[in-house]
Design a protein around this nucleic acid. Sequence first.
DNA 1: GTCACAAACG
DNA 2: CGTTTGTGAC
Lengths: 291, 291
Amino acid sequence: MNDGSSNTAKPPPADCGGHNGSFSIVSWNVNSVKSRLAHLSDYLTRFSPDVVFLQEIKTETESFPYPEIESLGWTATVKGQKSYNGVAVLTKKKPVLVADALDIDDGGQARYLETELDGRRFICVYVPNGEPPASDPSSKERLIYKEKWLDALNGRIRKLVADGVDFVLGGDFNVIEFDSDVYDPAAFKGSAFTVQEIRSRFKALYFNGLTDALREKSPRSPLYTYWDYRFSAWEKNHGIFLDRLFLSPYFADRLTAADVDAGFRALEKASDHAPVRCVFDLSSAPEDVNE
Amino acid sequence: MNDGSSNTAKPPPADCGGHNGSFSIVSWNVNSVKSRLAHLSDYLTRFSPDVVFLQEIKTETESFPYPEIESLGWTATVKGQKSYNGVAVLTKKKPVLVADALDIDDGGQARYLETELDGRRFICVYVPNGEPPASDPSSKERLIYKEKWLDALNGRIRKLVADGVDFVLGGDFNVIEFDSDVYDPAAFKGSAFTVQEIRSRFKALYFNGLTDALREKSPRSPLYTYWDYRFSAWEKNHGIFLDRLFLSPYFADRLTAADVDAGFRALEKASDHAPVRCVFDLSSAPEDVNE
DNA sequence: GTCACAAACG
DNA sequence: CGTTTGTGAC
């Protein structure tokens, strides 16, 4: 069984929220921001993250619960869509909206949001799932879309790196990088989460010099961020590592901690994803700079 | 505006629940017993009624929430149906199921439940609405069904009275007896709630010597038990008196109180009907017996 | 299993 | 407005 005790949500350390140079960023696939408003408000109040990436808000931009989020002290930059997908970036100061889509012809699916604040980019992504619909299990259409989407993301990231931009790229990547990232690798063999066409495009992100914050710092093993609602997946700890925080070198050098707040998956009416968080010390030059 | 303050739910008097001969019966159209389980549990715990008539439980007999009701100390006798209608009688001791339908050919709509306990009958009814469907506003089919149903009910009641059976007949009668029983009589003129064919059949119940407990004892004026979910009907007190408790002479002679618990209509996620209650003193012979 | 949505009903 | 049912998604 899984009670999430090793990662149950707890009060923030005193240096959270930007004091003393501490800076924290969270990514959370909330599976409907309206249904998750109580949990999200609770998270914001307790951890006071500086930047929050939300995926699957499942509402249109105009219907985002701005009043509730703003009353807690955050401003929301939103790319919404009816029923499906939808991403948002919450920040304490109003950012510049750099882009609300990748350069891809996908009928305007709300999966990408790039914001800039104090010269840094905060990029929220919801990578396509890629599995065929139940009505047409042999269709490759969604897989091809996922491949194209990851190609476009790699193109964008390559450009930011080339331009020397400091950024954090977080979200639900819908990729199982290693067999050890899923409770039952055999069950996902050949799926859009594991096939070579997808894994290779995912790994290309690293070639741009990015660091996976959770892989770097989280003590959790196995490192899961998603547990299906069905089949008692949470109780059996049948999870998958899907949610990621990728750091450009500037942020990677200043990373102090990263973890999965699995306690939020244990709550009543939880999202099927837990929030993932990374913490930075932005107050001083990193240790290795002086070596 | 309507805050229900004159009838807000309050703790029961010390003699509730069968102590000292006090005996109480409630009728409540819950509009889905599953959706109303919290309110119903609250009601049962606070008022401890001896008999409860539920209408519009909107679930099949097997899907009734027996565990929750039984854990509170009641046994449920249920005539359920998928999606629509459905009636139940809750009692503290297991009753005999006398009938779960009237003698009428209606495709088995779950609208009638007659139980016997300690030689008394407790009869729960959900009278057909009778209004035509929106798709065919001139259809008389449902009105005719309502007429037939009330005829069958009258036949049944006549027989019980003739047999000298003591009983309480409670439920949602879907009849506006007098123009003063509705906030806007003009709006219901010619409707299946008020037309002569229905009112005359409804009034025939009285000819069997029954007493309307609420009309007899409730201080409420106007006496409403239903407020539409739409058009802010509750806030404007645009109500209708639809839910009734009819008493055979034995019960009428021992009636001590009857009222509408409108406070339950004021709650969040309320049913559109309030529970109606009558209280008896069954410990001694009634006053007028010795006169 | 938990979402969102669209009908139908009252 | 607030139920139920059905569909589709993940």
